[in-house]
Structures are given as C-alpha cells and as structure tokens.
C-alpha cells in the first residue's frame, strides 16, 4: 500500500512537471522537422503535377505501357476500327474503366508511396525517437537522474511518469506530421489520414516505448535508436518474406492493409500483410509496447549511478 502510494505520487509529480516541458530545441528535433519539410515539399510537387494516380504507372504484370498509354491506345484502336458498334462499345467500356481507376487511384498510390514507404519506414520512427530517447536520456545527461533517485519515490514511478509525459508529444508530432503530408497530397491524402490515423497513433506509442527504453537504459541511446530505426524499421521492414515481421511498421501496415481491403482496395499484394488480422496486429503492437515498458521499469530500477554526482 505504501509502495502504491509513493508510486502514484511519483508518477503524478513527474508527469505534471514534464508534460509541458518536452525538449523541443535539440538537434534530433530539427532533423525530424527538416525531413518532414523535405517530404512535404516532394508531396506538394507531386500534387502540383497531379500525379497521385496510376497515370505514370504500369498495370501489374504488363510491360511497356503505363495506364495513360493504355487508354490512349484503346482510343486509337477504337478510331482505327471505324464504326463497328460492338468494338466501339467494348473500347469505350475499357477506356472508361481505366479512366475511373485513374481518378480513384490517388489513395492507393499515396498510401503505397508515402504512408507505407516513407512515413512508416523512415519518418515515423525518427519522429518518435526524437522525443522518446530524450525522455530520460536528457535527465541522465543533465544529471537530474541522480537527484530524482534521491527522492523517496520508486524508480518505476519516475520511468512511468516520464513515459506518460512524452507520450502526448510523440503522438501529436506523429499525427501532426502525417496530417501535414496528407493535406499536401490533397483529397487522396486526407482520405488516407482519416482511414489510417489510428494505426499511426498505435505505431507511435509502440515506437515511443521501444525508444524510451533505449534512452533510459542504454548508453549512447540516440545512436542505437537511429541504428535500430534504419536497420530494423527501414531495411528489414521492407525486405520480402517474413523478416519484415521483426519491425513494428509491419504490424501497422497489416492494420492499414485490412482497413483498405474492407473498402475494396488491395494494397501491396504479396507483402504478407493479409496474414495478420487487425486484432492480431493491434495485440502484437500493444504487446511490444508493454514488453519494452516492463523491461524498462526493470532495468531502470537496476541502473548503477557510477560517475554521477
């Protein structure tokens, strides 16, 4: 009972103090903001050229022509074949279907190229580690950790309080960044944001737990977190086969795959994203977050304060 009381006290005090005091001026923050601006600029330029569709892409398994060429060819064939009503009707139907596909293709093209690849594979881990690694890492560097440990509150409460304090920042920064990219992409992007904000928020929480653990318990945490983000999330996450299941992004993609499949849009066929149901993917992500939270609490309680004064 005494422990619970001081645990709640520790969480409450740490959370209250640190909730509005995330360190936003450090170098990693500016790197994250820079990448957001860079990607947003690319998205704006693609939107400006009206390229969020299959116009410049080739249909699956078809070499040579892209969708736009196909429509032009069908129209040319229709003209060349003259006034045969049957042929003309078939050509019009195919051409119409292709045009319809092109108009509606903005969402899958944006999702595949921006959300699946750039956002989940690179930007999201970077944004999350920006705040999560700094959480207790800055306490360690600022030597406030030793001071905090001298207070009669359990170390676990400091860990949980700090984690809860950085969580809103991580989620707001992640969803805010996603929203900026979505707005830059226009209607397709906004549709994707409305459909996918929940898996992105869930992935942010999971990343926050992983990177917070690293910041609290490992030396040179920023470097290790960056290495993890690039090796596991960017490289392994985009590998074919089951290796990608090691990344957090995989489970977010599974949820997105299911959500878009429910609407009749199949994203990234053959990526293995259909093997996990939404519920399973959510459980996996929450499980990873919880596992790192518990591991963090355990190891943080064992930290030796050598060299700290």
């Amino acid at each position: 009972m005494e422990f619970l009381k001081s645990f709640i006290l520790g969480v409450k005090s740490t959370l209250a103090v640190h909730l509005f005091r995330a360190k936003v001026g450090h170098s990693l923050f500016w790197v994250s903001a820079g990448f957001l601006l860079l990607v947003a600029a690319v998205v704006v330029s693609v939107s400006f050229k009206n390229q969020w569709n299959y116009k410049t892409l080739k249909p699956r398994g078809q070499a040579g022509f892209n969708f736009k060429n196909s429509i032009e060819m069908i129209e040319a064939c229709s003209m060349a074949l003259g006034h045969n009503a049957g042929v003309s009707a078939v050509c019009s139907a195919v051409s119409g279907a292709n045009s319809g596909l092109m108009i509606q293709s903005g969402f899958p093209v944006f999702t595949k190229n921006v959300v699946f690849s750039v956002l989940l594979g690179f930007l999201l881990p970077l944004w999350c580690l920006t705040f999560a690694v700094e959480g207790l890492g800055s306490e360690r560097e600022g030597k406030t950790l030793f001071w905090l440990f001298s207070k009669p509150v359990p170390r676990s409460s400091i860990y949980v309080g700090k984690f809860l304090a950085i969580l809103p920042w991580v989620i707001i920064w992640s969803l805010g960044g996603f929203f900026v990219l979505a707005v830059c992409a226009g209607d397709s992007g906004i549709f994707a944001f409305k459909l996918f904000w929940q898996p992105i928020a869930l992935a942010s929480i999971t990343y926050a737990s992983v990177f917070f653990f690293m910041g609290a318990c490992l030396p040179r945490a920023s470097l290790i977190a960056l290495a993890y983000a690039f090796v596991v999330e960017t490289l392994l996450g985009s590998m074919p086969g089951s290796l990608k299941q090691l990344s957090v992004a995989f489970y977010a993609r599974c949820i997105m795959f299911q959500k878009s499949s429910d609407l009749g849009v199949v994203l990234e066929q053959g990526g293995g994203y259909g093997d996990f149901s939404q519920t399973m993917a959510i459980c996996f992500m929450l499980g990873i977050a919880l596992m790192f939270l518990v591991a963090g609490i355990f190891f943080f309680g064992k930290i030796e304060l050598r060299g700290q004064r």
Binding site: V17, R21, G142, K143, T144, F146, W147, S150, Q308, R309
Partner: peptide
C-alpha cells in the same frame, strides 16, 4: 547534488 541538476524551463 554537486551537479547542476535543475530543470531550466522551471
């Protein structure tokens, strides 16, 4: 403590 150990924004 000997170290500064403060939260500069407080």
């Amino acid at each position: 403590p000997e170290a500064k150990a403060i939260i500069p924004s407080m």
